[in-house]
Simulated assay, not measured.
Amino acid sequence: MPYEPPTHSVERSMRATLGVRTVAGVDEVGRGAWAGPVTVCAAITGLRRPPEGLTDSKLITPKRRTRLAAVLADWVTSYALGHASPEEIDEQGMTAALRLAALRALEQLPEQPDAIILDGNHNYLGGSWQVRTVIKGDQSCVAVAAASVIAKVRRDAAMVELGREYLPFAFAENAGYPSPVHRAALEEFGPTGHHRLSWSYLDALPRWQHLKKVREGVDTGEQLGFDF
């Protein structure tokens, strides 16, 4: 399907209106998974022409995405990754976990950005950052698209490694997201130490419901059920 390539228009606007110099694009992957961490990438690209084919990672085939991530790793000015574990997601809720992962990524950048373009419509960073949220920013903004691809490829690779230890869950294929195979493995074996135990998928598993962690007054990450 044809798509419009991402541009630097949002970054140029922020530079002009806010007087900032360095802008980072920030995107996450793993928000809706049942297992594995949530991963955030922060990428600084400047205003250079992006590599051909750059767009939202979800619109790129796995092989192309892997190749593009390798190109981006050398092309971006800098990038860094941050993660929040399933335990942190269960204890703090998804919004706080996203903030934690994003801050870990931003703190690792060799140069701290003056402002941030954040994919979506919710500023989960808060604090003193100058943030502009952009719906579908991973399709329209170069830095966010770059962050999207790098985050997706790195997290998927980590889930492939995890899948070698937990073969019935097929993490190499589903990256910890809902799937029939993943559900069947949960029904038979129960959640692993890498599963999120505050998620609503446990409500549909009578044998394992007692493992669910319930926290009052804390976002539980959309309370995801089965969605195939």
Rank of each mutant, 00 (worst) to 15 (best):
V149S: 00
A147R: 08
L118G: 05
I150H: 01
R164E: 15
L167Q: 14
A172H: 13
V149H: 00
N121C: 10
A151G: 03
P180A: 13
L162Y: 13
S140R: 15
K136D: 08
M159K: 04
D138A: 03
S198K: 09
K152G: 06
A157H: 11
H194E: 12
I135S: 08
N123L: 06
F189L: 15
L202M: 07
G127D: 04
G126M: 11
I150Q: 03
H194K: 10
E173L: 13
P168W: 10
L125W: 00
P191N: 07
P180W: 05
W129E: 09
K136F: 08
M159H: 03
A172S: 12
K152L: 06
S148H: 02
I135C: 06
I135G: 07
Q112V: 01
A184P: 04
R164K: 15
Q112C: 03
R196E: 02
A151T: 03
Q130L: 15
D114E: 09
P113A: 01
V149F: 01
P191G: 05
H182W: 10
A158T: 11
L162P: 06
A170M: 13
R154P: 01
A151N: 01
L186S: 06
K152M: 05
M159G: 03
A143D: 02
G190N: 09
A115E: 02
Y177H: 08
E161D: 14
H182T: 07
V134D: 09
H194T: 01
L197V: 05
M159T: 00
R183K: 12
A204E: 15
R164C: 13
I117A: 06
P113W: 00
V149M: 02
H195V: 03
E165L: 15
P168K: 09
D156M: 11
A157S: 10
Q130E: 09
A145H: 05
P168Y: 12
E188V: 15
I117P: 04
L167F: 10
S140I: 13
M159D: 03
D138K: 01
D138E: 01
G176E: 07
A146I: 00
V181M: 14
D119V: 11
Q130F: 08
Y166L: 14
I117F: 04
V160L: 12
